[in-house]
Design a protein around this nucleic acid. Structure first.
Lengths: 190, 190
DNA sequence: TGTACATCAGTGAACGCGCGTTCACTGATGTAC
DNA sequence: TGTACATCAGTGAACGCGCGTTCACTGATGTAC
């Protein structure tokens, strides 16, 4: 039934799973990853130079998963406004479904800066593109980068604070997101 | 010249300093705190039950520092709109001046939840009160709690993302904050 | 097709390290009479 | 004012633990001729 995946992939998946469970990079010890993947600690060195290399690849993997989830969310949709709505929803849904991973990805400076050059900013890049399409569709002449930055900041605030304070009496997510898009004038004209 | 402070205070101050420097709770080891305070590791047990108790008190101390900085920022100001502007600025300034502490305070679920009941939410409580004064001053009948929640989410997004991605080409902080207050209609009517 | 050898993913034992915590102790300060 | 004792903040040695990393190894798979 279940395909036996290559060890390297099992190691990376286990590392991301540990991030999801414990919400911290420190919990992703080489020995814990090896144990979760059903392999001895020394075997890790057949696939990664050291623990740092393992962590870095695991973070990239997590970014890719995040990016893929966003893209999938708007896959069959043509209208830019709807695509943005779907991706916005997906952004927060994924963050809340795996708060551990999300808080690690945006956890501290080092974590974010390490992968910033590669996949991390790809998520933001896609956001810029999508916002650009929306602006173009409505003849809005604002700078796509500025509007996307604002959107990024706001949606991160919603997602991160909900991750960290899950017991706070938050307003309904739909309402919060719709209000945000309305304020940013990223909604089809009435 | 320099007053010799009690050991307990030096321990707490050292713990917060370690948070500021390393931006993580794991770096605040009992031995590191003791060393920074110029005392042997075992001496810590004269003032705290164990490492957990030390960490919890250090987090409370950090929250209090944060709260005090916000209040000080609006101290001599009477007009509610100006008070809110000043505190908003101070919020982001403090977060950026000590990103390590800020990211620890809002770092992961456990950190936030542990002190949530005590000082952490006091910061938000003050925000609710201040927003209430502003709404009252302009005869605005929106719910102060809802507006404050929105403000809290947005300002956290700005502060946290700037902390984590300091090299991103952010817009000027003044502009970003003024735009936010304008969008939330927390600005004196023209 | 068979044989010799290289490659490669895995193993277990061992290392030194920093950690939280315990223990028995020391020496100064405070208190009772 | 002196003396006896309790209190209390500090010490250093020692513990067991999980960590990252190294080492010499094993056994299976691939390759050359």
């Amino acid at each position: 039934m279940s395909e036996k995946k290559p060890t390297k992939q099992r190691l990376l998946a286990s590392a991301v799973e540990l991030m999801a469970t414990h919400g911290s990079i420190e919990a992703v010890s080489l020995r814990a990853v090896a144990g979760a993947a059903g392999v001895s600690p020394t075997a890790v060195y057949r696939h990664f130079a050291d623990r740092d290399a393992l962590i870095i690849e695991a973070l990239e993997w997590a970014w890719l998963e995040f990016d893929r989830a966003l893209n999938e969310a708007s896959e069959g949709t043509a209208d830019p406004h709807e695509r943005l709505r779907h991706q916005g929803h997906a952004y927060i849904d994924v963050a809340l479904a795996r708060t551990g991973v999300y808080t690690v990805l945006f956890g501290h400076r080092d974590a974010a800066a390490g992968t910033q050059t590669s996949v991390g900013l790809e998520v933001f890049g896609n956001m810029v593109t999508l916002v650009g399409e929306v602006l173009e569709a409505t003849g809005d002449d604002r700078q796509r980068f500025d509007v996307a930055t604002h959107l990024f900041t706001s949606i991160h605030g919603i997602a991160h604070l909900r991750s960290v304070l899950p017991t706070f009496p938050w307003p309904p997510l739909d309402q919060q997101l719709d209000e945000l898009l309305l304020q940013l004038r990223l909604v089809p004209p009435a």
